[in-house]
Design a protein around this nucleic acid. Sequence first.
DNA 1: GTCTATACTAAGATAGAC
DNA 2: GTCTATCTTAGTATAGAC
Lengths: 210, 210
Amino acid sequence: MRKIPTSQIENPSPAIAQKQEQILQGAIRVFLQEGYARTSMDRVSAEAGVSKQTIYSHFQDKEGLFKALIERLTIACFQSIFCIEKLQGDPAILLRQVAKIYLTKVADNPDYLALLRLIIAESQNFPELAKLYTQTVVQRGRQILSQYFASHPELGISDPEAMAHIFFGSLVSYIIVQEMLYGKELISLSRDRLVDSLMNLVISQSKNIQ
Amino acid sequence: MRKIPTSQIENPSPAIAQKQEQILQGAIRVFLQEGYARTSMDRVSAEAGVSKQTIYSHFQDKEGLFKALIERLTIACFQSIFCIEKLQGDPAILLRQVAKIYLTKVADNPDYLALLRLIIAESQNFPELAKLYTQTVVQRGRQILSQYFASHPELGISDPEAMAHIFFGSLVSYIIVQEMLYGKELISLSRDRLVDSLMNLVISQSKNIQ
DNA sequence: GTCTATACTAAGATAGAC
DNA sequence: GTCTATCTTAGTATAGAC
């Protein structure tokens, strides 16, 4: 079995896969909590319950471990949010459901909240990870919404892509400001109020073309 | 003249003020570029053109320097955006103008873009700075918009606070996704298209009550 | 393949000269 | 008040035993 330098894992034996899993689980806890620079490999090895050298035998270096871990988390985050691929049904119910899913899956999951923070924090140093996140999570979300808007002309949305950005972006900024930047300690704006207003906006568009 | 341990500066002599200024200017460049943990005091001293000990005579430690610097930048960012206090005039023109000002001042200013990234990155380690930013920049922006919406009932906005969050939040998320997370490399969504759609939303609300 | 022990480097902070 | 030189700790990465 050859050494595995990057996150590209090809047919690893069960034993190796299990060790890697163990390392990644420990590393996730530390990196998400402390950020990249503050995380020490000593701390990771302690958290994962393996020696430092074992980590270096599975991953090239600190950067390699970090990249593998962020890639995995990003995919997991995507799968968690977009469990339903096709959007169908009454807009009023469906869009509300979409908003609820995203807010619940990300805002209420400390890991995915920390992932978003970490992606932003390291966007300069790891642009490829930021792009992966944008592509996988944000872009996909906007695309699905955009397609939904476009396939429902009765909504009267002239620019579905822009509307998708506004809809999804409002949710993203809600999470960042209210949950990360302590906005909810300064003004309480419940999720229901946000979603209600978002719904009103989408619905009111349609009334103008009737 | 007593030593100045924190960012609270009280009547410093011109010479001292000038040195502090010199240190802060150098520190700003390094911290905004590298982030907190990656920034070394050696690098700051080199960038500022003073010795390390001079920094430590003006600021308690790395944390103290960082806090002073972020506080100053946050205030400057606020003043840059909210040069106009009172919002008046035709909604269609004025709201468009507000959006343009925010997008221009933050997205096109690498310092304020980096400030936002740094605030998010260090929101766990420096919650007081995150709160200051939210309070000073975000909250103020939402408040002004909210008051404007509330004082213009002809717009037919049922929840001005929520609408202000959606309006301002769409701009914030646009900056984060498009400018920081390389969104504009994946899909181009021009500022004009975003602002146009935002305007349509606000205007279409009013049509429903006529 | 995994562990213990260690080399090497860098960074925060301070001592002491001027 | 400012500089040079230094102390001390901590962190990445590796060498060598089992």
